[in-house]
Design a protein around this nucleic acid. Structure first.
Length: 622
RNA sequence: CGGGGUGUAGCGCAGUUGGCCAGCGCACCGCGUUUGGGACGCGGGGGUCGGCGGUUCAAGUCCGCCCACCCCGACCA
């Protein structure tokens, strides 16, 4: 033992580690691994910043895990960084087990590859762009399909090199119009993303399924319950996609679930079963006065007909690109039955629109339609999209394009026609499941990961080809798979907290043990502390030691706030009862463990905590 | 981008119809007392009052412009 005061630390950290304790002449010293709260960079706060609203944001700031730099831009403090390392270690373990090989692709990328795939033009202002000193267009990585495809075309030549799986854990920038909820929705973030490379669709299916399962294991090991839902392919393009959702009221995505058959989908793509009404003979058109009936509700009320007997017209301005990449505004007239809503994602995908926005009244009038009394009847020069149910619904009520009047007995085909007839209905709570007809229920969720079957979208654009056994050149079939690390951390915090603070699953806690030291009045326990710290550290149990000169209340409250799974208290009281006090963060009960048995007992408890932290979840089916 | 809100010490906040040295709690530093659930006393340090411009004898306070952050919507993974 080294009693030297304020001497340099003998371990590699080279800091003055001997700290004088309150009312004690004793100092203590270095060991193989240690972290003391008195030295931890950052501090706990009694009050959360006023701008934080959701629990994970407030607690992560209060407990000293994160600090905000700007909107959607955060610094990870040492505690968060430790948890991130635990999470990414789990990710590496799982992706490595699929045969993944870790690489690292650049955050700053030349725009050329993005121009080759067209996304330089397709993606709007959420892409970070700048010019380098030579005036070349540059892109801040928002994802890495282009770069990985560029890599593949330079590396993959033969079917012998396939299948392959590469991944990295890298910073991305997406200039989100509205960052919010702390780490849930940010602009700069770290993402695990892997890219599968296969000879054909069969190979892709295998890797897709492997990721589908591996992702569930990652969330399970992190203690986060998730469900997988069918998803829109969005800016990724491609054929099939699933999203992993953590269900919570603070989530921004709307999800539909069928309890009966297990159907689950993001509202953006969710289908509903629409039973067509019985056939009726089309009746002659008739104009009726409907003053003040500018909404479906008012109209149905006035005419005493159900909303399902009306046609709802929604005017939307779509930004659609032509071959040259020029964006043109096109007015689109979307028609659904009065009892339904338009799904803008379905509509945008149909039109290949870059952007949709509601049309203004003036834009509507320019077509000859009258806002509030609009219908496609009698109009030309507008792009009409009708929901598939409209041609099967007879004698509907629709606007007369005249202030204060509607038309009765409007029928598709006879009275108007459309450029597109397809499904543009938004699924709602209680709608019939497309598979089994049972009522769907609507929930909110946070998307914590997604997987895409890209197919040959990028391989074709960038020329990623290989030669098969017979010497034929074929495009590499790709998949991409991603998990936002910070968002995952925030969701874990959201799931595992109580009114006192965070409560980390043992698998991702920044440290496993919070060792609280309360100096005694009569006994000097600093030597016991030094030994215990060292023994725990030597056993690989990495204690976070509260050596601060603070009252017991402050220390216990901070321990609850930071939320490490096991708290061990060394105090005169516990010592006189025969050892140290053990208490689990998730339990109210405390018990005394003899000093000599403390390390063994701690190891045992943490092992069982880790085993039970990994939750079981229902994976559903693809 | 539209609507709403907030900017005063590290965090939370007060600051009246414009008025003299800009305050409170927590946190921080020093000394002492205290020591198992956010202790106490005494003494300290810390502010371009978001920025710029204007009105005025005088601006944290009134006016204009701008910026930042938060919330709702649009949008987005």
């Amino acid at each position: 033992m080294d009693d030297e005061e304020d001497g340099p630390c003998a371990c590699s950290c080279s800091l003055p580690c001997s700290i004088r304790l309150a009312r004690s002449n004793l100092t203590y010293f270095n060991w193989s691994f240690h972290m003391r709260l008195s030295r931890l960079f950052g501090q706990t706060l009694r009050e959360a910043p006023a701008e934080s609203e959701v629990a994970s944001h407030q607690l992560l700031v209060r407990a000293g895990f994160i600090r905000q730099l700007g909107a959607g831009i955060f610094t990870s403090m040492p505690l968060a960084q430790r948890t991130i390392q635990k999470i990414t270690a789990i990710m590496r373990d799982e992706i490595n087990s699929l045969g993944g090989q870790e690489i690292s692709m650049p955050v700053v990328q030349p725009a050329d590859v993005w121009k080759e795939t067209g996304r330089w033009y397709q993606i709007g202002s959420e892409m970070g762009r700048f010019k380098d000193r030579a005036g070349r267009d540059m892109v801040l990585a928002m994802t890495h399909e282009e770069v990985v495809a560029d890599l593949v075309r330079g590396v993959i030549r033969s079917y012998r090199q396939l299948p392959a799986l590469v991944y990295h854990i890298q910073t991305k920038w997406r200039d989100d119009p509205r960052p919010r909820a702390g780490l849930i929705r940010v602009r700069e973030f770290t993402m695990l993303d892997s890219y599968s490379l296969d000879r054909d669709a069969v190979g892709l299916d295998l890797q897709y399924q492997a990721h589908y399962d591996a992702y569930f294991r990652i969330y399970a090991r992190c203690g986060l319950p998730v469900v997988a839902v069918q998803a829109d392919t969005g800016m990724m393009g491609g054929k099939m996609a699933h999203e992993y959702m953590y269900l919570t009221p603070i989530g921004e995505d709307s999800l539909l679930f069928c309890d009966n058959c297990g159907y689950s989908a993001n509202r953006q793509v969710a289908k509903v079963r629409k039973d067509p009404p019985a056939f009726e003979n089309p009746e002659p058109l008739r104009k009726v006065a409907t003053p003040q009936a500018k909404t479906i509700e008012a109209l149905a009320d006035l005419l005493q007909v159900p909303a399902s007997r009306t046609a709802k017209a929604v005017f939307i301005m779509a930004k659609v690109e032509d071959e040259q990449g020029n964006a043109n505004d096109t007015l689109v007239f979307a028609i659904v039955r009065g009892d339904m809503e338009v799904n803008e994602t379905k509509l945008a995908n149909l039109l290949r629109a870059k952007e949709l926005r509601p049309a203004t009244d003036d834009e509507i009038r320019a077509t000859g339609a009258v806002p509030g009394y609009a219908s496609p009847v009698g109009l030309s020069d507008v792009t009409v999209v009708v929901d598939e149910l409209i041609p099967l619904s007879y004698n509907l009520v629709a606007g007369a394009n005249e202030e204060g009047y509607h038309l009765l007995n409007v029928n598709y085909g006879r009275d108007f026609s459309a450029a597109y007839v397809t499904d543009i209905t938004a699924a709602s709570n209680g709608d019939a499941c497309p598979n089994c007809g049972s009522p769907l229920s609507l929930s909110r969720g946070v998307e914590v990961g997604n997987i895409f079957k890209l197919g040959t979208r990028y391989s074709d654009a960038l020329g990623c080809n290989y030669l098969d056994e017979s010497g034929v050149s074929k495009p590499v079939v790709m998949g991409s798979y991603g998990i936002g690390v910070g968002r995952l951390l925030a969701c874990i915090a959201e799931e595992h907290h109580d009114e006192r603070g965070l409560s980390w699953p043992a698998s991702v806690a920044p440290y496993p043990i919070h060792l609280v030291f309360l100096p005694g009045k009569n006994l000097d326990l600093t030597g016991v502390l030094a030994t215990l710290e060292r023994d725990l550290a030597d056993a690989g149990l990495e204690p976070l030691v509260d050596d601060r000169v603070e009252s017991a209340g402050v220390k216990f409250n901070d321990a609850d706030l930071i939320g490490l799974p096991l708290r061990i208290t060394l105090s005169e009281r516990a010592f006189n009862q025969g050892g140290v006090e053990f208490k689990l963060r998730k339990s109210d009960q405390a018990f005394i463990v003899a000093i000599d048995a403390a390390v063994g007992r701690a190891r045992e408890i943490l092992r069982s905590l880790e085993d039970s932290a990994s939750i079981h979840q229902d994976k559903g089916t693809i």
